[in-house]
Amino acid sequence: MAVELTYQVKGGDFSHAGDASSQVKKVLKQLDIDPKKIKSIVIALYEAEVNVVAHALEGVIRVTVDEEKITMLLTDRGAGIPDIELAMREGYSTASKEVREMGFGAGMGLPNIKRNTDLLEITSEPGQGTTVKMVNFF
């Protein structure tokens, strides 16, 4: 049993931010994953999806679910993150006013992601884009 899902994300498209996370949540429910695990997974994925919408030009989300884990890979094209350690700090944010009006942009997203995932790897090429890999075990 391996389920593979792919979603396109458009930067700046706030009205659709969360569509992919919502779809993934539905799939995980169908697979009968523990609701507490589902909540952590989709919160992390949602924050990461919002980050692509808020901070990048466009991105792709690839999700693989197998017997023991879910792997979520978000690859985007955009400004990238020059200092990942700094970006991971609670409260650090470069978000625009528009992003804050959406209820985000307090610099809590990456710390939220860290808290809700078993494995988190962020790599970024400033000026090119960012890759966020998250893994949660069931």
């Binding site: 706030f14 931010a17 969360g18 996370s21 919502s22 949540k25 909540k39 919160i43 949602y46 209820g103």
Partner: peptide, 15 residues
């Protein structure tokens, strides 16, 4: 006081 789609999405993710 935040009335937009993200409030609903957030509630959905947070159960």
């Amino acid at each position: 006081g935040l009335s937009n789609v993200q409030a609903i999405r957030t509630a959905e993710m947070a159960d």
